[in-house]
């Protein structure tokens, strides 16, 4: 087990401001505070080499949790062990065994070529020059960023910059990768490349990957295990398929350009197609009855998209 979290909580104290001018002036003299529980009593374990996705609406506590796991924030309560260390102690050996990549923040030096940031990180992590050269070559080859190493970071595109951020974050060969929205703002093509890289990196090095993302595709493609965090609490811990089966077990049978008579079998027209929503067990029976009468139609069976599964799941929680 590489990560062990027990009863983790984080409470922020934030000032409360009244409405309008009067409220502003009042808060000048007598500031009221409110405790916000960003993370409440969260526990989970992660094994070495796993790929795990944190999912949840904005403000659910994903990033806060990630920052506590990486030692940036001190927990209000609970215990965290990552690779055998307490993150908040920020001991050198711990920091050298993890990395954090934040899609919305950057560590590369803005005015200098990425290579300079890499060299600085090499010195700060105390990576042996030979090992550094080897790792850098491999990462550069995997991400195909050879041509941009000499360009100042400010002249790079968002996607190129994210690739360089990944290199900068991985030069010390961490065992645990925390990725906070690593694909945010990237175009689809670049998202696919980054996803592919993370997957490859995980399988080839056995490093543990913990990822948050807004893009369901990141989760669907990358992380077999899912932790759903909602309003600071852990609501689900398990595989994506199990969650889908539980929340949205039905299938959609779509008959492309199907005949109107399908209505007899419970189909309804949608954009010129005939569509029926059925339970998983029902699917095969319904399919055969369609095909027995119209053997030549084009037919497709779909699970509800992940976005819809999640929307339904969160709705279920609040209802």
């Amino acid at each position: 087990m590489i990560i062990d979290v027990v009863g983790l909580s984080k409470t922020y104290r934030v000032p409360v401001k009244g409405e309008g001018l009067a409220g502003s002036v009042k808060s000048l003299f007598n500031r009221q505070y409110r405790d916000v529980e960003a993370v409440k009593n969260v526990s989970f374990q992660i094994e070495r080499g796993e790929r795990v996705g944190f999912l949840g609406p904005n403000g659910a506590g994903k990033t806060t949790t990630l920052k506590m796991l990486s030692g940036l924030l001190h927990p209000t309560a609970g215990t965290v062990l990552v690779a055998g260390y307490r993150p908040k102690d920020r001991v050198v050996a711990f920091l050298r065994s993890i990395t954090l990549v934040m899609g919305q923040k950057q560590q590369l030096l803005w005015d200098l070529p990425p290579q300079e940031s890499f060299a600085l990180n090499r010195a700060m992590y105390g990576v042996d020059p030979a090992a550094y050269a080897r790792t850098l070559d491999q990462l550069v080859a995997m991400l195909k960023i050879e041509p941009i190493l000499q360009k100042p970071v400010r002249n790079l595109s968002l996607g190129e910059r994210m690739k360089c951020e990944l290199v900068a974050a991985l030069l010390h060969q961490p065992q645990v990768l925390f990725l906070d929205e690593p694909t945010i703002g990237l175009d689809v093509e670049m998202q696919v490349q980054v996803r592919k890289f993370i997957h490859e990196y995980n399988t080839s090095t056995g490093a543990t990957v913990i990822l948050t993302s807004h893009y369901m595709q990141d989760i669907a493609a990358l992380t077999p295990r899912l932790l759903v965090i909602d309003k600071g609490t852990l609501r689900y811990d398990g595989s994506l398929t199990a969650l889908t089966e539980r929340v949205a077990p039905e299938r959609r049978i779509v008959v492309k350009g199907g005949p109107a008579e399908l209505a007899e079998l419970g189909f309804v027209p949608v954009d010129g197609d005939q569509v029926a929503t059925v339970t998983a067990e029902e699917t095969n029976r319904r399919l055969s009855s369609v095909l027995s009468r119209w053997p030549m139609v084009e037919i497709a069976v779909e699970s509800p998209p992940l976005e819809e599964v999640m929307a339904r799941y969160f709705h279920e929680g609040s209802a």
């Binding site: 065994s97 105390g126 042996d128 080897r134 010390h172 961490p174 080839s204």
Partner: peptide, 20 residues
């Protein structure tokens, strides 16, 4: 891309040197 000698080997290495 194998992490030379496994991850533990690296984090127990010499560590950052101040002059460097």
């Amino acid at each position: 891309m194998p992490p030379a000698g496994g991850p533990e080997a690296l984090s127990s290495g010499p560590g950052p040197r101040l002059p460097e």
